[in-house]
Computed example of a mutant assay.
Amino acid sequence: MKRICVFCGANPGHNPLYRNEAEKLGRLLAARGIELVYGGGNVGLMGVVADACLSAGGSVIGVIPQALMGKEVDGRHVEHRALNRLEVVDSMHTRKARMAELADGFIAMPGGFGTFEEFCEVLTWGQLGFHVKPMGLLNVNGFYDPLLALFDHAVDEGFLRPQNRAMALADSDGERLLAAMAAFQPEPVSNWLKQEKEL
């Protein structure tokens, strides 16, 4: 994995542990020589992980929609102006597609609606066989326990296949998560989907 896309909050969260773990992830990516791809923000955990990666000598690519350029939150520009590369795109849809195109894998840190949506979308793309890249949740402080329980519930209720549920890797430790992602072997696209394609 030469590049990893990190989805995370535009807010820092209340618990300082979230910021600490974002800093650790940014430094870890830099130490491993893995380029960070993210949403180009200078605020919240987005700014923290990017700053930590840059400070540790890493390389960071941001992708941000034009509509967010020049905006401010708490006196800070939304866009990060000190990245190795900042790509400005026309929409949120284009942003997600471009980040997915650039990345060899995906990690979601704690965040809100946008983070949930981004991670679940790449999971859906993986389920459909549109990519075979590893996808992991950095489950800081048990933040994603309810979401993981929901995934398990979807399996129990027959809405999600176990092999697709297994695509959502999770760990509370960044190094272990990266190791699991490096070892990830995707299941072949399910037979039902192949049959649908043939119809």
Rank of each mutant, 00 (worst) to 15 (best):
M1W: 04
M1P: 13
K2T: 09
R3G: 00
R3D: 08
I4G: 04
I4A: 12
V6M: 05
V6H: 04
C8T: 14
C8R: 11
G13D: 08
G13E: 02
L17F: 06
L17Y: 00
Y18E: 09
R27M: 14
L29G: 01
L29E: 04
A30L: 12
A30Q: 14
I34M: 15
I34T: 14
I34L: 07
E35R: 13
L36P: 10
G40E: 05
N42C: 07
V43Y: 01
V43F: 01
V48M: 03
L54E: 13
A56T: 09
G57T: 08
V60K: 08
I61E: 01
I61L: 02
I64A: 03
A67D: 07
L68A: 03
L68Y: 11
M69N: 02
K71S: 00
K71I: 06
E72F: 09
D74P: 01
R76C: 11
R76N: 09
H80G: 01
R81Q: 15
R81K: 15
R81C: 11
L83G: 06
N84M: 06
R85L: 15
R85D: 14
D90L: 06
S91W: 06
S91Q: 12
H93K: 15
R95E: 06
A97F: 03
A97G: 13
R98L: 11
R98H: 04
M99S: 11
M99T: 03
A100G: 15
E101M: 10
L102A: 10
A103C: 09
F106D: 02
I107S: 09
A108L: 08
G112A: 13
G112D: 13
G114C: 05
F116T: 13
F116V: 15
F116P: 05
E117Q: 02
F119N: 02
C120R: 09
C120W: 05
V122C: 05
T124Y: 03
T124H: 10
T124A: 11
G126Y: 03
Q127N: 04
F130N: 05
V132G: 14
P134S: 01
P134V: 00
M135A: 12
G136C: 10
L138E: 07
L138P: 10
N139H: 06
G142E: 02
D145F: 00
D145E: 13
P146S: 06
L148R: 11
D152K: 08
D152E: 14
V155S: 14
E157K: 15
L160R: 02
Q163Y: 03
Q163D: 15
N164Y: 07
A168R: 07
A170K: 01
D171L: 00
R176V: 03
L177P: 10
L178Y: 02
A179E: 15
A182S: 10
A183I: 08
F184R: 00
Q185R: 12
Q185Y: 01
P186K: 05
E187C: 09
E187Q: 14
E187D: 15
S190H: 13
K194V: 04
K194G: 05
K197S: 05
L199R: 14
L199K: 13
